[in-house]
Simulated scan of single mutants.
Amino acid sequence: MKPSSPRPLFAAALVTMLSLPHAASAHDAGEARAKNVIVFLADAAGVSTLHGASLHGYGEPLKLHIQGWPHLGLSDTSPVDKWVSDSANGMSSIMTGVKTRNGVISQGPDAVRREKDGTPTRTLLEYAEERGLRTGVVSTQSVADATPAATYAHSNDRGKWGEIFPQAFSPRYGDGVDVLIGSGREKIGSQLAAAGTGGLGLGH
Rank of each mutant, 00 (worst) to 15 (best):
T100I: 10
Q67Y: 00
K63M: 13
G182F: 05
A193D: 14
Y152F: 14
Q67N: 07
A13T: 15
V37R: 02
A45H: 08
P8R: 14
K99N: 09
L192D: 02
R134G: 13
S85G: 11
R134N: 06
F40W: 13
F10W: 13
S5R: 13
T147K: 00
R33A: 13
S75Q: 14
R101F: 09
S85M: 03
Q191E: 14
N89C: 14
G59N: 09
P171Y: 03
A32C: 10
V98K: 02
S78E: 04
L180I: 09
G52N: 15
T147Y: 05
G201N: 01
P3E: 02
V37N: 11
R114W: 09
D145M: 09
Y58K: 10
P3H: 06
Y58C: 11
G196D: 06
S155H: 08
T77D: 02
A53M: 12
I181D: 00
G52W: 03
D117I: 05
S85Y: 05
Q141F: 06
L55W: 00
T121A: 13
W83M: 15
G198Y: 05
S54N: 09
H65K: 15
P148E: 06
S139K: 07
Y173K: 14
I188F: 02
L9T: 10
T147R: 01
S183K: 13
A146C: 07
W83L: 15
V37L: 15
A45I: 06
V179Y: 05
Q167Y: 05
L55Y: 01
L192Q: 01
V39S: 07
R172G: 03
P21D: 12
D145S: 12
P120Y: 10
G159Y: 03
D86E: 10
G162P: 00
E31K: 12
G68N: 14
T16W: 04
Q191L: 05
K116T: 09
G108T: 09
V47A: 14
S54D: 02
S5M: 09
L14C: 11
G199W: 02
K99P: 04
E60D: 08
H71P: 01
G68V: 07
L64V: 12
G30N: 13
A149P: 00
R134E: 01
S25H: 08
Q167I: 10
A150G: 01
T77I: 14
F169H: 11
H65M: 12
R122W: 02
Q141I: 14
A144D: 05
S183G: 11
Y127G: 05
D43L: 09
I66W: 04
T100W: 03
R101L: 14
T123C: 03
A150N: 04
L125C: 06
S48N: 13
H22F: 12
N156K: 14
A144S: 07
G90T: 14
R122T: 15
T121E: 13
V84G: 04
V37Y: 12
A150V: 08
G132Y: 04
A153P: 00
T77K: 00
